[in-house]
Computed example of a mutant assay.
Amino acid sequence: MNDDQLLRYSRHILLPQIGIKGQEALIRSHVLLIGAGGLGSPIALYLAASGVGKLTICDSDKVDLTNLQRQIAHSTDRIDTPKSISARKTLAGINPEVNVIALNERLDESRLLQLVMDADVVVDASDNFPTRHAINRVCVLRKKPLVSGAAVRFDGQVAVFDLRHAHSPCYHCLFPASGEDQDTRCAVMGVFAPLVGIIGCVQAAETLKTLLDIGQTLNNRLLLLDGLSMEWRSIRLNKDPVCKVCGTGASIGEPMSEIRHMTATPCAGPPNIPSGRA
């Protein structure tokens, strides 16, 4: 690191769990962030500020006036600007050393497979279950750690699925694609503005811990927040041995359909936890 970097990241370097070696590891790292909205905004801001060297942001949506109540990476003068481009401009003002790749595109199977392969950690800040399941499938296939979050109304959740480990459950173990849960979108249900900041910050923290291999991540756990009472619950997760994605009944080789909603408002709410999955 040069002198400017030593000053910029000095508060990280003072932490014995990080130090110079850890900060250099962050500078060499690559995170794939899918979604640049309510959750994606604080995730991107803190990853860039922390010195993650390369950050690929995927989002095919544009900034809308209704986004500005909670999506802090964007501003009024950027309405109708692609969210990935808007986020890149904001991050450049925070830390110009970070290489931000802004992808304003819908991702098909081959593209997602390519992007996940090149990343050290994948962060899901998308807003619908088909997209989340598609990301999960590719992370299982590529054995990449996945940091997942969701928020709607006053309820939020975060989990880490470290798919480098055979014992780790995947997103499908917790929320099977064949389940009856429906997307509950903030456009209909509403979302408390600070909630996405809280959940997004937890996702950023879990991403950094995973990159640095420090502490205890949320792998094998689901963290739930009731924003009205400000009470947290941590639920132990178990791998489903017959999961169709990561278990003995896996059909991961089947073709995935095109991911059509890489949008930026991650407000598909936490669904009911299926019995036997937690």
Rank of each mutant, 00 (worst) to 15 (best):
S41D: 10
S148K: 04
Q203S: 06
A150R: 07
G22F: 00
V121W: 01
A177H: 09
N136S: 14
M230Y: 04
R153V: 10
Q5N: 15
K62H: 14
G149E: 06
K239A: 02
N238R: 15
P194K: 05
M189S: 12
S50C: 04
T90M: 04
T81H: 12
D155W: 08
W232M: 12
D127K: 05
P130T: 12
A150Q: 10
N128E: 03
L32H: 05
A125N: 04
A49T: 03
G22K: 03
P16W: 01
L218F: 06
T210H: 11
L237G: 07
T184L: 13
L103T: 10
K21D: 14
T217P: 12
V188K: 12
V147D: 11
G190I: 00
R185L: 14
S75W: 07
L15M: 11
M256Y: 05
R106N: 15
V191E: 10
R111P: 01
L163V: 02
K143P: 05
A177D: 10
L14I: 15
N2I: 04
K83T: 08
A92Q: 15
E254M: 06
G19I: 01
E24Y: 00
R185W: 08
L39N: 10
Y9K: 07
S178H: 06
Y46C: 06
V31C: 02
P16V: 05
R236N: 08
F192R: 04
K54Y: 11
V191N: 13
S275D: 12
G190K: 05
L107V: 15
T265V: 13
I72R: 07
G37D: 12
G40C: 05
Q69S: 13
M230E: 08
L218A: 09
G37T: 09
G37P: 05
K143R: 14
A159T: 05
I13S: 07
I273E: 07
L112E: 13
V191S: 13
S84E: 10
P271G: 15
G227R: 08
N104C: 05
P130F: 00
